[in-house]
């Protein structure tokens, strides 16, 4: 019996599921990392993911191809990011309340338009989602092939975006500006760089990644849109950002670790479901997110200018 709980780790299916579950978290956590690195907390994440999931799916349902679906979802995310930035960056409104407002707005717009377009569907209609792209040769490696190289292109995109964001933050002048906007905006302004613009672009970029993360759920992991399908993934991503110490590479690690526990939980549920009610397994991700933040708390160092609006020409 105990042995069976270990055997889970030796199935390629478990590792493949881990990677699948990690993807929306990777996109969302990267998105939040960029926002927070520039000094803006984006609590719109949960709603933006939900809207991205709806818009991406709906575009494909109405005839767009899958890649356009991702693009349209990203564009929608960018639009809500712009709205968040106008409020928090240009007007200096409370980032907490704005974020909650954006989450309410984005998710209700998503639900409203879904019902408007499909008023009477009881069973959610389906699309043909991304199909597996087996990487030649690599996918034939026993075990590893199935675990790592038999995924959809959307999955590979998630891992690729970690590299892109890592490069953006650490090797480009714009990445440096993002980090300075979140650490020492006065110094950035002294360089003649527009802090507000840097923050706005960061929030727009981050929000489109969040929307792509939502779209992954409806276009790659599943094939339909359900109300409440984000189910707290956005909030978990916010916890992962803290756990990842605002670093893209650690965000990847955190998302994988977290997804691994989630994939394990689903399988353990099948083994232990008779003794432990399934709700306790479902609680685990939320509980672990809190634990992760406690573990990370010793080395937690928030970006110095996070939550502080920058006003031009004002001495701080």
């Amino acid at each position: 019996m105990i042995l069976e709980f270990f055997e889970i780790f030796f199935t390629a299916g478990f590792w493949a599921a881990t990677i699948r579950i990690a993807c929306p978290l990777i996109f969302a956590t990267l998105g939040e990392v960029i926002c927070e690195r520039s000094g803006v907390l984006n609590l719109g994440i949960e709603g933006i993911m939900s809207l991205g999931a709806m818009v991406g799916w709906m575009s494909v349902y109405l005839g767009a191809d899958l890649y356009s679906g991702i693009f349209i979802a990203a564009l929608t995310g960018a639009l809500f990011g712009l709205l968040h930035a106008i409020f928090t960056v240009y007007l200096g409104a409370s980032q907490h309340v704005t974020g909650i407002g954006i989450t309410m707005f984005a998710s209700s717009v998503g639900f409203f338009s879904y019902k408007l377009i499909l008023p009477s569907s009881t069973t959610p209609p389906k699309i043909i989602p991304f199909e597996k792209l087996e990487i030649p040769f690599l996918s034939e490696i026993p075990f590893l092939g199935e675990a790592l190289f038999q995924h959809t292109p959307f999955t590979y995109l998630a891992f690729f975006s970690v590299i892109i964001i890592f490069w953006l933050l650490n090797s480009t002048p714009f990445g440096l500006s993002i980090k300075m906007a979140g650490e020492n905006p006065m110094a950035l302004e002294a360089q003649g760089i527009d802090v507000l613009l840097v923050r706005t672009v960061s929030v727009i970029l981050g929000s489109s990644l969040m929307a792509i993360g939502g779209a992954y759920l409806t276009m790659s992991a599943f094939d339909a849109f359900y109300f409440g399908m984000i189910n707290g993934r956005g909030w978990i991503a916010i916890a992962l950002v803290i756990f990842a110490a605002w670093k893209p590479e650690r965000a990847l690690l955190g998302a994988l670790l977290f997804a691994g526990l989630d994939a394990y939980q689903v399988r353990a549920q099948q083994l232990a479901g008779a003794f432990i009610p399934y709700q306790f397994f479902l609680m685990l991700p939320f509980f672990l997110s809190i634990v992760a933040m406690i573990i990370a708390s010793k080395r937690t160092r928030y970006p110095k200018a996070l939550l502080i609006p920058f006003r031009r020409g004002e001495r701080h």
């Binding site: 907490h96 707290g232 909030w235 916010i238 916890a239 939320f286 509980f287 809190i290 406690i294 937690t300």
Partner: peptide, 11 residues
């Protein structure tokens, strides 16, 4: 532990 209450209350 300086764990942000926004996240913990939501979770």
């Amino acid at each position: 532990y300086k764990v942000d209450e926004v996240v913990t209350t939501l979770l």
